[in-house]
């Protein structure tokens, strides 16, 4: 019963966050444009040789998603703070973890939508040859995004309510994301290169493991972060 209530709370928060985004659209458009711009800059730094671009494609794609995603995470709380809505949200009865889960799912949808645009542009700009088993690639992308969004949503809960939130979130988040990013980049790279060494399977398993570890850790710690 209590769990069903929590599910309803999560749904309400996801719906609220996505509706706010859908009505303004400014947030999504600017974040997605930034992701594309970063890809263009990487292309200029690494190109124009086709093979060099293809070799670097996986890394550039993930970093573009990361750099643009960071803006989305801070935004997700900033919108609440401007209206004094976070305090009201905390005053409602019910578990705190439901707030985290709601924000997490909303951010996940936001970043996945952005990923679609960034990947589509990336495939064109970096002259990527799409492998035959592309559904696995989608799985890698999803796992990587989960890792980034879990930690991003967690750290943004702190940084967005501190002074200097613009610098604090990347400073806290990037070192924490190194394992997730490394696994995502390596799995993607191995996959795009035809996976001659069968390396991507192990990386995918590791990525899934990291996701689970960080998911559990952040859910346990969120209570302490949001209550003050």
């Amino acid at each position: 019963m209590a769990f069903r209530d929590d599910v309803r709370r999560i749904k309400a928060i996801v719906w609220k966050d996505l509706t706010t985004e859908r009505r303004s659209k400014a947030g999504f458009n600017s974040v997605a444009s930034l992701g594309v711009t970063i890809l263009v800059l990487f292309g200029l730094a690494l190109g124009p040789d086709g093979q060099a671009l293809r070799d670097a494609a996986a890394g550039a794609l993930w970093l573009a998603v990361l750099f643009a995603g960071v803006l989305a995470f801070n935004r997700s709380y900033q919108v609440e703070l401007e209206g004094g809505a976070l305090e009201a949200l905390l005053l409602y009865p019910g578990s705190r973890w439901a707030i985290f889960a709601g924000k997490l799912i909303a951010n996940l949808i936001f970043v996945l939508l952005m990923l679609v645009i960034v990947v589509a542009v990336g495939i064109v700009l970096f002259q990527v040859r799409i492998p035959a088993q592309w559904p696995t690639l989608l799985g890698i992308m999803a796992l990587g995004v989960v890792g980034i969004v879990v930690l991003g949503t967690f750290y943004a809960a702190m940084s967005s309510r501190s002074r200097a939130r613009e610098v604090l979130l990347p400073l806290l988040l990037y070192p924490m994301l190194i394992p997730v990013l490394l696994a995502s980049m390596e799995a993607t790279k191995a996959f795009l290169g035809g996976d001659l060494l069968n390396a991507s399977g192990a990386w995918i398993q590791m990525l899934a493991l990291f996701d689970v570890i960080f998911l559990v850790a952040t859910f346990l710690a969120f209570e302490y972060v949001i209550e003050v």
Partner: peptide, 28 residues
């Protein structure tokens, strides 16, 4: 206090994970 404790604990969890992932990355 609350925030830095959370950051400290998550950071401590992360160090062995980084070690493991970089080791993998290198051995490949």
């Amino acid at each position: 206090g609350q925030w830095s404790a959370a950051v400290g604990i998550l950071g401590a969890i992360n160090v062995p994970i980084v070690w493991m992932s970089v080791r993998w990355w290198r051995t490949l």
